[in-house]
Simulated assay, not measured.
Amino acid sequence: MNPFERLLISAEALWAQRSVKLAPEPPGERCGVSGLSQPGRPLHLVAVGDSLVAGSGVDHQSEALTPLLAGLIAQTVGAPVKWETRAQLGATIRRVRYRYLPEVTGKPDYLFICAGTNDIMARRSIQEWCDDLSATLDEALTRGQKVFVCSSGQPHNSPALPKALREALGRQIDAQTEASIEICRERGVPFTNVSRAPLPEGFWATDGFHPSRIGYEFAAKMLVDSLFPQKNQ
C-alpha cells in the first residue's frame, strides 16, 4: 500500500467513524423457545458475539439471528430449541473470550460464536485474532456439545462506507477468514464463511452496515446448511 492509499483509507475511516450512525441493539427478550410444535426433548442453543448476534439492524430481538437460527435448527432436527443470546454491539473476540463465554453454563447442545468485524475495526493484528480465537474455541469446546463459528460479516460491501475503506476492509477480512478456517479445521469446528457470499436483495438494514431481517434469514440459512451438511445431500 502506497502512502497516498494509506492516507486516503485513514481519512475515510475517520469520516465513517464520525458520520455512519449504526443501528442500535433492538429491544426484546434475549431468550426464548423455537419450534414448540416439534416433538421431543428441547435442545439448547447459546449464541455469543458481536452486533450480528445482538441483532443490530432489526426492530425487535425476535427478528434477529439467534431466534431465526434456532427456528431452522428446530425444523432440521425435529425438536424444540431453547435459545439465548449473549452479545453486544462493538464486541471483539476478546470480549467474547473473557466476558460472554464464561457466562455459558449447562453444556448447551449448540454453542455459536460470531465475532471478527470489530477486531478489524479496532486494528487488532492477525496474530492477536488467532491467539484469542484459538483460546476461545478451546474453552468453548469444554462448554458446549457442538460448537460452530461464522466469519465476519460484509462491511467491505456496506453501502454506508466509502470505496477505499471497503477495499481495505475486504483484504483484512479475507486474511482473518483464512486464519479462522485453519483454526477451526484443526479443532473440528464447523466454520461458515459469510463474508464473500452473494447477498440477496434487501440484505442491508437502514444503517447500511448491519443486516435486515432478510439478511439475518440469509445468514441463518447458511449457518444451518454448514452445521448439518448431511441434510443437503
Results as ranks from 00 to 15, higher is better:
Glu186Ile: 10
Pro26Val: 08
His210Gln: 04
Thr192Arg: 06
Gly144Glu: 13
Ile93Lys: 07
Gly90Ile: 00
Val81Ile: 06
Val224Ile: 01
Ser180Ile: 02
Lys107Met: 15
Leu72Lys: 15
Gly153Asp: 12
Gly208Phe: 03
Ala160Cys: 09
Gly144Val: 15
Cys150Phe: 01
Ala79Gln: 12
Cys31Ile: 10
Lys82Ala: 00
Ser152Phe: 06
Leu22Met: 03
His44Ile: 01
Ser51Val: 07
Gly35Trp: 12
Pro155Leu: 03
Asp138Ala: 15
Leu45Val: 13
Gly170Met: 09
Arg185Lys: 15
Leu43Ile: 01
Thr142Glu: 06
Leu89Arg: 07
Trp15Pro: 00
Gly153Asn: 09
Glu201Trp: 06
Leu227Gly: 04
Cys130Arg: 14
Tyr216Thr: 09
Pro211Met: 09
Ala47Arg: 11
Tyr98Ala: 07
Leu89Glu: 00
Arg123Trp: 15
Ala135Asn: 13
Ala13Ile: 10
Cys31Leu: 13
Gly40Arg: 08
Lys82Gln: 14
Leu89Ile: 13
Ala74Phe: 11
Ser226Glu: 08
Ala13Asn: 09
Ala64Glu: 14
Asp174Cys: 09
Ile113Val: 12
Pro26Thr: 13
Leu161Thr: 06
Ala205Glu: 06
Leu165Glu: 12
Val77Ser: 05
Leu111His: 11
Ser152Trp: 05
Pro80Val: 12
Gln127Pro: 07
Ile181Asn: 08
Val77Met: 03
Cys150Pro: 07
Asn118Thr: 03
Glu178Cys: 11
Gly35Asp: 03
Ala175Leu: 14
Ser62Val: 01
Tyr100Lys: 10
Pro3Trp: 00
Arg124Asn: 12
Trp15Ser: 05
Phe203Gly: 00
Trp129Glu: 04
Ser125Lys: 04
Glu182Arg: 04
Gln38Leu: 04
Arg166Trp: 00
Leu8Lys: 03
Tyr98Cys: 04
Leu101Gly: 15
Leu101Asp: 05
Ser62Arg: 14
Ala140Glu: 14
Ile73Tyr: 03
Asn232Met: 01
Gln233Arg: 14
His60Ser: 12
Asp207Glu: 02
Ser212Asp: 03
Glu178Ala: 15
Pro27Asp: 02
Gly215Tyr: 13
Glu182His: 07
Glu182Thr: 08
Glu167His: 07
Ile113Tyr: 05
Met121Asn: 00
Cys31Glu: 11
Arg213Leu: 07
Ser56Gly: 13
Ala179Tyr: 13
Ala168Thr: 01
Asp138Cys: 08
Arg30Phe: 00
Ile113Arg: 09
Cys31Met: 10
Arg124Gly: 10
Ser195Cys: 00
Phe148Cys: 10
Pro198Thr: 05
Gln154Trp: 05
Thr85Glu: 06
Phe148Ser: 04
Ser62Phe: 12
Pro190Ser: 00
Gln172His: 04
Gln17Val: 02
Pro155Trp: 01
Ile113Ser: 12
Gln88Cys: 11
Thr192Cys: 14
Glu5Ile: 07
Glu182Pro: 01
Arg94Trp: 10
Pro80Ser: 02
His44Pro: 08
His60Thr: 10
Ser180Asn: 02
Phe218Ala: 10
Gly40Asp: 08
Ala74Met: 11
Lys231His: 12
Leu89Cys: 04
Gln17Asn: 11
Val96Tyr: 00
Tyr100Asp: 14
Gly78Ser: 06
Val96Gly: 14
Gln61Phe: 15
Ala164Thr: 14
Asn193Pro: 09
Ser152Lys: 07
Asp59Leu: 15
Gly32Glu: 08
Phe4Ala: 15
Ser37Phe: 07
Cys130Ala: 15
Arg196Ser: 02
Phe203Ser: 04
